[in-house]
Amino acid sequence: MNAESTAARVENATKIYGSGSTMVTALDDLTLSFERGKFTAIMGPSGSGKSTLLHCIAGLDALSSGSAYIGRVRLGDLNDKSLTLLRRESVGFIFQAFNLIPTLDAAENITLPVDIAGGEADKAWFDEVVATMGLGDRLSHRPAELSGGQQQRVAAARALVSRPEIVFADEPSGNLDSKAGAELLGFMRHAVDEFGQTIVMVTHDPNAAAYADRVVFLGDGRYVNELADPTATQIFEHLKSIGG
């Protein structure tokens, strides 16, 4: 895999929380790449470091040692301001909860990153993303007036609207029922297929991971192995086999 086809990667990434007797090694010398235009899922048992990996590669948290790259940019070389600008321009986020600003309506939440940058949303692209996410008639609603599934779709639309290099999703369907979750993941899959969007998603749900092109398994902060284009059953069986 050459640099052009890599949207993000970590090299020898180590992340240590705390010190002394409370020291926890969340990432242990991990090296991993994420291919451009692909939907990658990261799985692993609790404490395997999958969320930590997401935070560090997305520029939300700093590695203790090693390097994280988005495109060709090494995150460790950036100061807080440059890192913020990188997140604004190159990264989209979908979190498990609290994705939206409660005082802004759906449309304003979607254009938030563009507004923060002081720019104008590309109207045609905005309409396309909104249509893809099935939000056309919900744009003037506040988050409190939307269902959980709709809220997550708004978050997904926000992540896509600035055409980021890469979208990171942390258990995006974790708080949704299976129908709303399937809907959201279907939209995300659609964004990868139609728009060539790169998505990296952390999940513990085999059904969610089955939407991905590639599922990477972590354990104790290390790479374990991966499956290409698996079904939910394959993932489930694989998790059992590696003791997750």
Binding site: K81, T84, R87, R88, F95, I101, L112, A117, R158
Partner: peptide, 11 residues
Amino acid sequence: LLRAVGATAGQ
């Protein structure tokens, strides 16, 4: 969240 989606500390 604002910081995550690209708001600077100053903003």
